[in-house]
Amino acid sequence: MALNLRTSDPELRVDDSSPLELLAAARELSAWDDTTRYVADYLLNAWTLRACSNDDPESIGELETVLDALLERLPNAAQLPESLRGRWQGYLSLLAGQLLRLPSADDLKDLLAREQIHKLLQSLPTDGRYLAQSELKDAESYSASRLSQLLGEIADHGLISSRKRGRHKDWRLTERGQQLLAEPNPMRQPRPSKVAAQAAVTANPKASAQRGMSAFKEIKKAA
C-alpha cells in the first residue's frame, strides 16, 4: 500500500513503510502543507533514530539519499519552511556522523575471527529477544569484568545492545547483528597480519624484489 502523507496516525507507518516510499509520496505532492510536513518529519525522525541506534549503514545511506532529495532535488523542496529544513539538515548531520563512526568491514572481520566473540554472539536469540548476561554461553568461563569488556567491544561494533534489569543486564542482537549471523558464511577469516606478510616476503625474496623494482619503474615512468 502506498504511503499516505495525510495519515492521521504516522506512528502506524513507521514499521510498514520506508524512506523510499516517503520520497515517492513526496514527489506526488503539488505542495507541502501542515499535515504532510508533520507526517514526513515524524517518520524521518523515527527512522533516523532507529538507523543510528541499530548502527545500520544501509538504512543510514538510504535516509541520506532521501533527505538530500527532499531538501534539494524535488520541485516542491523550495516550499519547505526554514525551520523544517534545519531539522532535516540536522538529521543528515546525525546520520553522517554515525556513518563515520561505524567499524569497517575489516574491523568486523577481525572481531568475528575471535572464537570467544563468535560464541557469545551465537548464544543470543536470533530473533532479537533479550537474554540475561548470566545465561550467555561460556559466561561462567570469564570474570565479570572480562565478560563486560567483551560484550562492550561487540556493542561498540553495533552488533548487540543491552538493557538494565535491576542490578542485572540483558543483551540482544541488534538488526545488524541478526543480519550478520544470518549470512551463510559470516566473516570469520582475519586480515593477514604483518608477520604473515613478512613471512611471504622472506619465503620468496627474489619475487618480492622483482615486484618492488617493477613498481618503482612504473612510478618513475609516470613521473
Rank of each mutant, 00 (worst) to 15 (best):
L121P: 04
R188E: 15
A105D: 13
A199Y: 01
W171L: 01
K194P: 08
A78H: 15
P10R: 01
A215F: 00
L151K: 06
Q116F: 05
W88E: 08
R188D: 14
Q210P: 03
L124M: 14
R163K: 03
R165T: 15
P184F: 06
A197Y: 04
E64Y: 00
D41M: 01
P192G: 07
K221G: 03
N4I: 04
K109M: 05
P186D: 09
Q79S: 08
D106L: 09
S30G: 11
A200C: 06
A139L: 04
H118Q: 03
W32N: 06
R114A: 07
A200E: 12
S141N: 15
D107H: 07
L108F: 07
R172S: 10
E218L: 06
R50E: 11
A155K: 15
M1T: 04
E11G: 00
R172C: 11
L63T: 08
L71I: 13
G212I: 10
L173M: 02
C52I: 09
A78S: 13
W32H: 07
A69Y: 03
K119L: 08
P186S: 08
S193Q: 10
Q79I: 03
A155S: 09
E153G: 15
A77H: 08
K221I: 05
K169T: 15
T65W: 00
Q98Y: 00
L131F: 03
A113L: 05
A222L: 11
P81M: 01
A26C: 10
P19D: 05
D107P: 02
P103V: 06
S17V: 09
Y91Q: 06
D55M: 04
P192W: 02
E82Q: 06
P125H: 07
L112G: 00
S214E: 13
W88V: 11
P205W: 03
T126I: 15
A196C: 07
P190D: 06
A203R: 08
N45A: 07
L136H: 10
H168T: 14
A222F: 12
L20W: 10
D34R: 09
G152I: 08
S143N: 14
P57I: 02
A2C: 01
N204M: 11
L181F: 07
A197S: 08
K217N: 12
I60R: 03
L43Y: 08
V14Y: 01
W171H: 05
S161R: 12
Q178M: 14
G86M: 05
P205Y: 04
A69K: 01
A77F: 03
K137E: 13
L80M: 09
L95Y: 07
H118D: 14
R13V: 02
A113F: 04
I60G: 00
S8R: 00
P125C: 12
S8V: 05
S30W: 05
L147Q: 08
E175K: 07
D68G: 04
Q178F: 01
D33A: 04
I60C: 02
L147N: 13
R146S: 12
R176E: 09
T7G: 01
D15M: 04
A105R: 13
E58G: 03
M1D: 06
V14N: 02
L43T: 07
A144C: 05
T65H: 05
S141W: 09
A215Q: 10
L3D: 01
P75N: 10
H168D: 14
R101N: 13
P205T: 11
I154K: 10
P205N: 06
E64H: 02
G177V: 11
E115P: 03
L124P: 02
Y142Q: 12
Q79K: 07
S123C: 13
